[in-house]
Simulated scan of single mutants.
Amino acid sequence: MKKYSCYLIDLDGTIYRGKETIESGVEFVHRLDETKIPYLFLTNNTTRTPEMVVAKLQDHGVKTDVSHIYTPVMATASYLKDKHPRNTPIRIYVIGQIGVRKGLFSDPRFVLDDQNPEYVIVGMDTDLTYHKIRTACRCIRNGATFIATNADKVLPANGELLPGNGSQCAMIATASGQEPLFIGKPAKPIIDYALKKINKTKAETLIVGDYYQTDICAGINSHIDTLLTLTGVTKKTDLQSVDVQPTYVVNNLNEWQL
């Protein structure tokens, strides 16, 4: 079995399930710390700041810091700054919660503009209103580039599936006539920027997660090896209908040898 010197690790379904701790996931992180193998927690959740993610992980027995957290908001910020000359303002209209707003507007380069922005950025917003959708669509039709933090159509929570950011974006895409550029898993941008942050190559990296459609497809789309843990969304029977199998499948992360 190939040895990897870097891990990109999903959270919900891998380290915890809502408020429930997945002990094998926590022990896996402890083993990485003991062997000093670099890793990033790679989440699609944009409703929390990195500091909030650190606090949640600590509640589940994982002591870490923001240097180990990577989100679609962070990747979005990097993507936009790469598109513009250094120190020039970037005008944006944003739909999203604290994770999106604080993650972008804490950087003075990002300027809120609800009239003529260069970009409309949409993250998960449980307080979504018709007015926000109307503003986003108007800006997109006037030429703003439509960016979605992630494509998750639904979110598992307390035994039900809630509408996700992908569903929000589908409505805006229909009304505006423009499909978004997706940043988070399974799209490539978040993987490219995460590897740049941790200074590792694709060949030495393994993506770990519980959901085929996001975590595993992120690896497939970026040509990175994948490890599916059957502790979350995707079950073994689900793999019978997919074209490309994960590189590895385990019942839980205690089965994985570093």
Rank of each mutant, 00 (worst) to 15 (best):
D113W: 05
Q178E: 14
K153P: 04
H131S: 14
C169W: 01
S176W: 03
I133C: 06
E118D: 13
P180E: 13
G164R: 08
G184P: 07
A173D: 09
C139Y: 00
Y119M: 00
S176G: 04
S106L: 09
E204I: 03
D107Y: 06
K188N: 11
K153T: 12
K196W: 03
P117C: 04
S106C: 10
L195E: 06
L162V: 14
P108Q: 14
V120I: 05
I198D: 09
G184Q: 06
D114Q: 12
N158H: 11
N150H: 15
T135H: 04
K153Q: 13
F146G: 08
H131T: 14
K185A: 11
G177A: 05
E118V: 01
G123Y: 06
P180S: 14
I183Q: 01
I121W: 06
I190V: 14
K200H: 15
L181W: 07
R141D: 00
I183Y: 03
R134D: 12
V154D: 02
L181M: 14
S167K: 02
D125M: 08
L161Q: 07
D152W: 09
Q115S: 13
G166Y: 00
A148E: 11
I140D: 01
Q115V: 15
E204C: 05
Y193A: 03
K132C: 02
T145V: 14
K132F: 01
G164T: 07
I172F: 02
G143C: 08
E118G: 07
C169L: 00
Q178W: 04
T145H: 12
T126M: 12
N158Y: 10
P117V: 04
K197G: 04
D152N: 13
A144N: 10
S176D: 02
D113K: 04
F146A: 08
K200V: 08
G177W: 06
G159T: 12
A194G: 10
K188S: 13
I133L: 00
F110Q: 10
Y130P: 05
C137N: 02
L181K: 11
L162E: 11
L155E: 06
M124W: 10
G123T: 04
G143Q: 06
T174A: 14
M171R: 00
N142V: 02
V122C: 08
R141M: 13
F182Q: 05
T205G: 08
T126R: 15
N165T: 09
T145I: 14
G159Q: 11
P117L: 03
S176N: 00
V111Y: 08
K196G: 08
K202F: 05
I133H: 00
K188G: 01
I172L: 05
C139A: 12
L181S: 10
I190K: 04
P180L: 14
A144D: 09
I191S: 05
T135L: 12
D107F: 07
H131V: 13
T135M: 09
G164V: 05
L128I: 13
D107S: 07
I140W: 01
K185H: 08
T135C: 07
Q115C: 09
A187I: 04
V154Y: 09
E179P: 03
R109P: 01
I190D: 01
V154F: 09
H131A: 14
T174V: 10
R141G: 05
G159W: 09
A170D: 13
I191M: 13
V154P: 04
P108M: 13
I198L: 13
E160V: 15
I140L: 04
D192A: 12
